[in-house]
Design a binder for these strands. Structure first.
Lengths: 328, 328
DNA sequence: AGAACTTGTGAAAACGTTTTCATTCGGCAC
DNA sequence: GTGCCGAATGAAAACGTTTTCACAAGTTCT
């Protein structure tokens, strides 16, 4: 029924070993290689990847486990990862955990069962803190978020500096009641919060912090509540694009004008952030660079498993727009 | 080194066949099942999926090939597909073609080599038109787009009706120079164009049509050019969310106020469309339903391969916002 | 000229499972 | 008691490749 390598071998008049060598890399005479290629075309042969992986003990596959596929940050990163992987002749399995530790465990087990070559992973804080360098059976690079120091390679943003830059900018514009709404599940949100708090104290300002599940709906609910208080902040820093969107909705719901009644500054320069008037001030992350660096670290880790753990820290770029402009 | 089923068998004091049966479904005594489960825990055994797939000739995997992962429509659909797949104990391979027929061919070949159980596919028009019912070696459901009539199961929007609804609405608001900017690569865009043209002629209006690659940058460039003309349209219909975004940017670039100088109506009720003032009128697609129906069709096709080809047509919902409101 | 490599090839083993086939054992019908 | 059936199990085959091993035929080195 289905055509296998022995059918190709018979058609080409050689052994299966020779077909295998002709298709992969191996010493084969040019004449035989052509015969084999002709036989492959004639028979419509498609190698069975399961058999290939089983025998060769090499899946040529990398797993990409992201926290939220709806977050454009992760789709952008995943495109960079995919490009690099396919350029290297590898396949990618993309998984979405929805920030749920149970799903993270599920997918990590799946990666083991697939015997993947390596994994790029954006873990929740809970999972990251539980994962020592030995607990994963494959080379792993953390992305966007880091875990126990020295446990895994990682590529992250300089979150402390980026958050501080937003505070500095808002303070320079004359805002003082600057609140921060941060995601509750990631190390990244914690770092942004730390950067925010350090900068606030440097400016001798009292920090106003709230935590929320990192999605637009939860952020909108929390921000709406907050903005309904009489002592509501006059500026808000939001720790990612989804939370930023929630805050914009909350401001609308409360009838607050931006930036007159409320200044907004967030993370992730998503395509819509310059579309909503008066434009949202954000930290732009080098998404393509993050994906590419993660693949580089992963390949180098696969190459030399025992090299010291590395952490690549990239800088964000502040994109200043109308949402943080102090009105006369 | 790595622990295999024979290690588990030895630890449990049974044969590998029994372990296999205890782990899958098969007649095993309760006592033995418990022994095996204990042995699995003790050894940390992880089944090798490649070996399992090779021997059982069942990948329990469905391929999901989308045209553009940046398009939130596809990420929303893919979440629905994933949920349904994992609920059925299947894995998903997600691939992104960037509307490129070459990448489509690449991924279709990959699906063959993976021996996937089935595929859900949003093809470009070029590929869809070239694919007869025999050309794919696995059950396939087209999604968002359809190909040759009767060749493959599909689940699509009623694009003609949806586009006509937008025209009707704009005409009712008193607009008459209504232009349409449609994607160039999909059958869906063609259908929306056809619906637009039919409705225009019903209203005795002259159609104004342009085509463009379905991404925000290309759409912005084309729309900017168009809107610079002296006989520019006073309303625009955009055939998907990315093109809609490009049009919004173009209006900004030309300094045109929406809807005073230019009305906008598009497809895909993306999260940002109600954020940009005065809110964008769109057709909302039942994304979760599309994904769920696609999986249903796929499972039923796998079940009974020879049943007649089916096409599920779902209706969009018009979400009317400020961008199409006629000013006094 | 002979030894020592290199290159190209085929036969057969190996990869880690599931499945087939055969066997044993206990219970049930006659 | 004998025969039959179903359930539980093990031995071994099978899945479709790649890799190892062996070998023949050049080719290069001494």
């Amino acid at each position: 029924m289905t055509v296998g390598i022995r059918d190709v071998a018979r058609a080409a008049g050689v052994s299966t070993a020779t077909v295998s060598r002709a298709l992969g890399r191996g010493p084969v005479s040019d004449a035989v290689r052509e015969q084999v290629e002709a036989a492959v075309r004639a028979t419509g042969y498609r190698p069975n990847l399961s058999a290939r992986r089983l025998r060769s003990k090499s899946a040529q596959t990398i797993g990409l486990i992201v926290a939220d596929i709806r977050n454009p940050f992760f789709t952008a990163v995943s495109r960079a990862v995919e490009d690099a992987a396919y350029a290297a002749g590898m396949r990618v399995i993309l998984c979405n955990t929805d920030e749920d530790p149970a799903r993270e465990a599920l997918y990590l087990r799946l990666m083991e069962e697939e015997r993947v070559t390596g994994v790029i992973f954006a873990p929740t804080k809970a999972t990251a803190d539980a994962l020592t360098s030995e607990s994963l059976g494959f080379p792993t690079v953390f992305i966007d978020r880091s875990g126990l120091p020295g446990a895994h390679d990682s590529v992250v943003l300089d979150n402390v500096a980026a958050a501080a830059a937003l505070v500095d900018h808002l303070a320079a514009q004359g805002f003082s009641r600057i609140g921060g709404l941060f995601g509750s599940t990631s190390s990244t949100a914690r770092e942004r919060q730390a950067g925010y708090e350090a900068a606030m104290s440097r400016h001798r300002l009292a920090p106003l912090v709230r935590s929320v599940a990192p999605n637009a709906a939860a952020a909108e609910a929390e921000a709406t509540r907050w903005l309904g208080q009489s002592d509501r902040p006059e500026a808000l820093i939001l720790s990612n694009g989804l939370i930023l969107m929630g805050a914009v909705r909350a401001a609308r719901a409360r009838g607050l004008a931006v930036p007159q009644d409320l200044a907004l500054a967030g993370f992730d320069n998503e395509p819509w952030t310059d579309l909503v008037e008066p434009g949202l001030t954000v930290i732009e992350q080098p998404v393509a660079e993050i994906g590419a660096q993660a693949m580089r670290l992963l390949f180098e880790r696969i190459e030399s498993p025992d090299q010291p753990v590395r952490k690549v820290v990239l800088s964000g770029r502040a994109v200043l727009r109308g949402s943080t402009r102090r009105q006369a």
